[in-house]
Amino acid sequence: MFEARLANGNIFKMIVESIRELVVDVNIDCSTEELSIQCMDSAHVALVSMSLSQSAFDHFRCDRSLSLGLNLPNVSKIFKMMGRDDTMVLKAEDSADKLMLMFENDKSGTIADFELKLMAIEAEQLGVPDTAYKCSISMPSSEFQRIVRDLQVMGDTCKISCTKEGLKFSATGQIGTGNILMRQNVASEKEEDHVTIDMEEPVELNFALRYLNFFTKATPLSPTVILKMSPGLPIVIEYPIEQLGHVKYYLAPKMEE
């Protein structure tokens, strides 16, 4: 029997919204420790890795590890019926062939419950190696979203280079070139406005802006975003969910022909 109760159901809704355009049919893996998702997009260019700890839930029971095969666009439709302040309850029997979702509104006392048929999804588990990245940048997630949106006007590829000058985002296209340089900023009072750049060695990589734009759907989950890069490796873009978990995106670089 799997049963989990999340007082702030909106967190789970935001997680679904942050990945449903990138990965459609996913397994939500339930263990005694956490709910997690690890899934690549159909082109195998991006990987989503989500984790939400059992400590995020007011009640969490998982007798046996389960994989809940779901179509995220369908799950997203059901979450449209959840109120902002609703409590969310997930429930599935061990012989999981369906998932129960319940939304409880404490104020009005209404309870909505939905049943989703589960799918059997062949999951290819990927070995994501632990990497000591050469550059790690923490910045306001809204800033990253704005940069990605603005540079999409200039072209379809973003060059991200981390040097001692700072972190530079560049895009070149028909109409010209755009560069946005961010420097370390730990002066402002608001922690959330800080930009911290840890650079062990300079790194310069190119990425498809279309994917970076998909990733910024996770912006509502976290005021900060963490970018980690090493020469010639996929970038990791991490949106921490307070201390409760994260949504991480890995993106393969575009290589010089």
Binding site: G127, A252, M255
Partner: peptide
């Protein structure tokens, strides 16, 4: 022109 690589080159399938 830059060619898009894919993750299979970086992450081994378990």
């Amino acid at each position: 022109q830059k060619r898009q690589s894919n993750l299979d080159a970086f992450f081994g399938l378990k």
